[in-house]
Every structure is written in C-alpha cells, then in structure tokens.
Amino acid sequence: MQVGKPSRTALATAHARAYHQIAPEPRVFTDPLAGPIMGLSPEELTAQTIAAAAGEDIAFHRVRRLFMASRSRFAEETVADAVAEGTRQVVILGAGLDTFAYRNPDPALRVFEVDHPATQAWKRQLLADAGITVPDSLT
C-alpha cells in the first residue's frame, strides 16, 4: 500500500471478478456490478487480461480468477446463511472494490465496508463514475 494511492491488490481482485463475468466458461459467481465499477467494456477487460497474461502461464491467471470468484461466492453464501439465522450486520474488511453492499438482497442487513482511506476514496469515485448508488444500508 502506497500513501495516497489505492490498493493494487484491490484493483487486481476487482479485475479478476469483472473478467470472470465475461469469461468463456461456466460462472461460479455472478456479479453484475463487477464490470461497471471498473469502468471497462468487455472488450477492454479481455484486452487487459490478455496483456497481463502475455509471456506468463495463462493457467495461472485462470486459476487465480476462479479462486477470486469462488472466494466471493463462498463469502456471500456464508452471509446469506447467517442472515437466515438472524444476523443483521456484516463487516467487509479490506473491501476494495467489492460490490456486495450494492447488490445486497436484504435491505435490513447493515453492511460496513472497511479499507484504507485512499482505496475508499478511489472506490467512491468509481461508483460515482459508474452511476452506482450507495445504499442506505451501507456504512
């Protein structure tokens, strides 16, 4: 983390989640906001993914992307189970560009996003640029 700059890890994770939405294989996680928050078209996402993998093992990039998508699915299924049992709050540590709070299917669930101030400011700007509304259930 560099002072005054958003997290590179948050960017890499968000890119993997966004590309997963258009990848040519079965989806393990669906997030319709993953692409819009990045501000990239499917063609731009594909071009960036190909460029990032140039000269490297493409299987590594695929496995990394599937890991990120699987991790997100697991976390959101765990939250859904907890909500069904009565949980009313969830905290996302290192929220980065995670979009759960903006897709939250339960308006009674309070979501707290915690991250580095520069990353949070960057996210707020990307949300505004994408026209993604910040829900009242988010802190």
Rank of each mutant, 00 (worst) to 15 (best):
R27V: 11
L11K: 00
A108Y: 09
L93K: 09
L40H: 03
Q48C: 05
I50N: 03
I92W: 00
E25L: 10
Y102H: 08
P24A: 13
R103G: 12
L33G: 05
V90P: 05
A95E: 01
R73D: 13
M68T: 07
A47Y: 08
H20I: 00
A12L: 14
G94W: 11
H61I: 07
Y102T: 08
A82S: 12
A95R: 06
A47K: 13
R27H: 08
S72T: 07
I50K: 11
A101M: 04
P42D: 04
V83P: 04
F29Q: 03
T46C: 01
H15K: 00
F74C: 13
P26E: 07
G55W: 10
A75G: 08
S41A: 06
N104Q: 13
S41L: 06
I58H: 13
H20P: 03
I58R: 15
A34K: 05
G39I: 03
A18I: 05
D81S: 12
H20E: 03
M38L: 15
D81I: 06
A101T: 02
E43R: 08
R65W: 03
N104M: 00
L45D: 00
M68D: 05
N104I: 03
P24C: 02
Y19Q: 09
A69L: 03
F100V: 00
P105L: 01
A69G: 12
D98K: 02
V83Q: 09
M38N: 12
Q89N: 13
G94L: 08
G55K: 08
Q48D: 11
P26A: 10
R88L: 11
A12I: 07
D106G: 00
A101N: 00
T99S: 09
P42Y: 11
G35H: 02
A51L: 10
A59M: 10
G35Y: 08
I22V: 15
P105N: 01
R88V: 12
T99M: 12
